[in-house]
């Protein structure tokens, strides 16, 4: 019933056996121990489970693990390099873009994808890029400021 799949997660090759009904989110959290992606709703409404799939942010609760076969997945655990926070993480730390932290991994990945495509986004473009990532703590103000700060600083 399980099928062996190969993919790359945070740059590393991964081989794992999953049943067809396992979502990418469940595989990351339960099979690979990457609990950075969170389940906030399970229906694609909140963005807490956002990961990058071939570079694009998606709700990993709405992707089958089997659909990730042969693809490239990046989770929040893959952002820091050799213990160094990346500019977005650093900006979230410094600007107060983090409160409870539950939306943070997803926000960071949505923002990572934005800055990769558009290194100098306007405030409106930032807000559009994170429109699928709900946050109940910050009113988004400091999250937007964090992303702007990271953009100014560059990669």
């Amino acid at each position: 019933m399980k099928r062996l799949i190969r993919l790359r997660v945070n740059g590393e090759p991964v081989e794992t056996a999953v049943p067809p009904n396992r979502t990418l989110l469940e595989m990351l959290r339960d099979d690979l121990g990457l609990t950075g992606a969170k389940e906030g709703c399970g229906e694609g409404d909140c963005g807490a489970c956002t990961v990058l799939l071939d570079g694009l942010p998606v709700s990993s609760c709405l992707v089958l693990a089997l659909q990730a076969e042969g693809r490239e997945v990046v989770t929040v655990e893959g952002l820091a390099r050799e213990g160094q926070l990346d500019p977005l993480q650093q900006a979230f730390v410094e600007e107060g873009g983090v409160q409870c932290g539950f939306c943070t991994p997803g926000m960071l990945l949505a923002a990572t994808s934005l800055l990769a495509a558009n290194p100098d986004p306007s405030e409106q473009e930032i807000r559009e890029a994170i429109a699928g990532n709900l946050c109940r703590c910050t009113g988004y103000q400091k999250i937007v400021e964090s992303i702007r700060r990271a953009a100014r600083r560059g990669p």
Partner: peptide
């Protein structure tokens, strides 16, 4: 000053009950 838990939270290291 940054929050004392901010680094854990931006790296995905912060553990919540479901984790």
């Amino acid at each position: 000053a940054p929050r004392v838990d901010a680094r854990d939270k931006v790296t995905g290291r912060a553990l919540y009950a479901a984790d």
